[in-house]
Amino acid sequence: MRAAGDLVARMQMTRGMRIQEAKAYVADRLSIAVSELTDPVIMTEVREDLQIGALTPLPECAKGIEAKFRIADVLGIDINCVQRFKTKTTHQFRR
């Protein structure tokens, strides 16, 4: 979370991507270089610009589930709890 580790980990977890492929995918989606993924200074700016959450989130920055909505959009993946949130808030909940 200091840089882009959570984003790379998401691609490993959900798509089974190995590290170099996952880094390249995330860098491409963020429009930055792979070498910038591990730079906490650059990544803090990127994370704030894209509203994908930060280690020390400033007031008005996306937090928690708000950031995960944005991460799903930015990475082009479904996030389980985001889908669940949408279901709970946009459809009549049925057991």
Binding site: M1, D6, A9, R10, M13, I52, G53, K63, G64, I65, A67, K68, I71, N80, C81, R84, F85
Partner: peptide, 8 residues
């Protein structure tokens, strides 16, 4: 937890 956290 999933409402408050960001990491997977």
């Amino acid at each position: 937890a999933v409402l408050q956290t960001i990491a997977p």
